[in-house]
Design a protein around this nucleic acid. Structure first.
Length: 352
DNA sequence: AAGAATATCAACCGCGAAGCG
DNA sequence: TCGCTTCGCGGTTGATATTCT
């Protein structure tokens, strides 16, 4: 491809915004003859444009089936979930949103959704919570903001469940703050994150009671209960709290403290090695919460299916179940199995 | 009111894949 | 199999609009 000249260099072809007259000529021509060879089209249609420019104009703006206007809440959520599965595959994402173009979705992502995820404390590349050891309180605020998103997602649930989930997520956010702080205090190379929650474990000595009370609203007894409860009942759901081993060491020279360091392996899948799940990279923060906007196919698809009413939302909780803990409910929401057929279909579509 | 900063989005560029002789 | 052409995709740019100071 070296040395290939841009199409606009050929004979001073026009660049830049299209005039209404050019649009009319292009639409008229395609309606009469179809686009045929894009390269030949402008010559036949009498346009002083390159074929590429004509194709772009037609596919992004002039096609009759294009849907203009603001993205709906549903479209927005769909894009976020598809992005968690597909990454920056804008044309693939556009395939799931009739009437929307890849360019429009890409712009919308870059101008709105990326910021929105960042504000929620989620990494827009991995869709996992960001870690930012230098700004712990801000991190907590982001996590709490994320819990509000969760409560928005639950608007079809009964109010009790929504409130319980939000309360759990808030508690979880506090625990993450606690973990962060312990990590920064520098005495923690925990054998597991559960150890961090153990008030009688090796890490607890560095936490004054006053801090627990004033900042986290916890006392030693509450912390003990949390530890006991979580370790006894929910260990399987705590997998995402497990620190990758290299993250157990405090940041060294070439590790960024700003939380913005993304393993290049998760920026874009290698050609021929495209994955539908967002990779869990070595840079994934050790203090990750369970995903609120999931990076895993199962969870993303679950949300998608909820949106498509293929799963009853309140399957996620059973208020009558007294043995089900709040945290289990969260786990159910995040890890509930979905139809294999549906997921296989999605994979097939994207890989073929 | 005006200039600066920021947001938006249409359009362009370059690359890789597919098609074809 | 190879080389050329065409197409489509994703990243980026830059003009314009909007908001902020």
């Amino acid at each position: 491809m070296m040395g290939r000249t841009p199409c606009s260099d050929e004979n001073g072809l026009k660049k830049g915004p299209w005039t209404p007259e050019e649009d009319r000529i292009l639409v008229d021509y395609i309606q009469k003859h179809g686009h045929g060879s894009w390269r030949a089209l402008p010559k036949h249609a009498g346009l002083n444009r390159c074929g590429k420019s004509c194709r772009l104009r037609w596919t992004n703006y002039l096609r009759p089936d294009i849907k203009r206007g603001k993205f709906s809440e549903e479209e927005e959520q769909l894009i976020i979930n598809l992005h968690a599965v597909l990454g920056n595959k804008w044309s693939a994402i556009a395939g799931h949103l009739p009437g929307r173009t890849d360019n429009e979705i890409k712009n919308f992502w870059n101008t709105h959704l990326k910021k929105k995820l960042l504000q929620m404390g989620l990494d827009p590349v991995t869709h996992r919570p960001r870690s930012d050891h230098l700004n712990l309180l801000s991190n907590l605020q982001q996590l709490l903001a994320a819990t509000n998103i969760v409560s928005n997602l639950t608007n079809t649930w009964d109010t009790n469940n929504a409130l319980r989930l939000q309360s759990d997520a808030t508690q979880l956010a506090k625990l993450q703050l606690l973990q962060n702080i312990l990590h920064v205090l520098g005495d923690t190379t925990p054998t597991s994150n559960l150890d961090l929650l153990n008030p009688f474990g090796p890490s607890s000595s560095s936490l004054p009671d006053g801090f627990l009370n004033e900042v986290l609203g916890l006392n030693q007894s509450k912390l003990q209960n949390l530890y006991n409860g979580y370790s006894a009942q929910n260990q399987p759901n705590l997998q995402s709290f497990e620190p990758p081993h290299q993250q157990q060491v405090l940041p060294t020279g070439n590790q960024h403290m700003d939380g913005g360091s993304i393993d290049s392996s998760c920026m874009k899948p290698e050609k021929g090695d495209e994955q539908l799940d967002v990779p869990y990279s070595s840079s994934t923060p050790f203090n990750s919460l369970p995903n609120l906007v999931s990076a895993s196919p199962e969870c993303s698809t679950h949300v998608l299916m909820q949106m498509e009413n293929k799963v009853m939302p309140n399957e996620c909780s059973d208020p009558s179940s007294s043995t089900s803990t709040n945290f289990e409910m969260w786990g159910d929401f995040m890890y509930e199995e979905v139809s294999d057929a549906y997921w296989k279909d999605l994979i097939d579509k994207e890989t073929n």
